[in-house]
């Protein structure tokens, strides 16, 4: 999953720095992630993992770092399994 997120981030993130140089915990907004790019990332994740982000997770925190994105996606996948 980490790899998929990094691939998407490279494709749609529009970051001024190389994604490979970012640590999992690095602040993506400080690295230059715009709100438009975060939406594109979200759409990419929905497509890649066949999920839909609930409104409650559509906030800055969910996309604050690669680790946070991973956690958010895992959370959605788990919630689906449980359902």
């Amino acid at each position: 999953m980490n790899e998929t997120i990094r691939e998407l981030l490279t494709r749609v993130g529009g970051l001024p720095v190389a994604v490979t140089e970012l640590e999992d915990g690095a602040d993506l907004y400080a690295a230059g992630l715009s709100s438009f790019a975060s939406v594109q990332l979200m759409l990419g994740l929905e497509e890649a993992f066949d999920i839909e982000f609930p409104d409650s997770l559509l906030n800055r925190k969910s996309f604050a770092s690669i680790a946070a994105v991973e956690q958010t996606v895992s959370h959605i996948l788990k919630a689906r399994e449980a359902a």
Binding site: L15, P16, V17, Y29, A30, A31, G32, L33, S34
Partner: peptide
Amino acid sequence: RSNEKAAPTD
């Protein structure tokens, strides 16, 4: 910007 090396959004 927060420092000389920071991205424009930082």
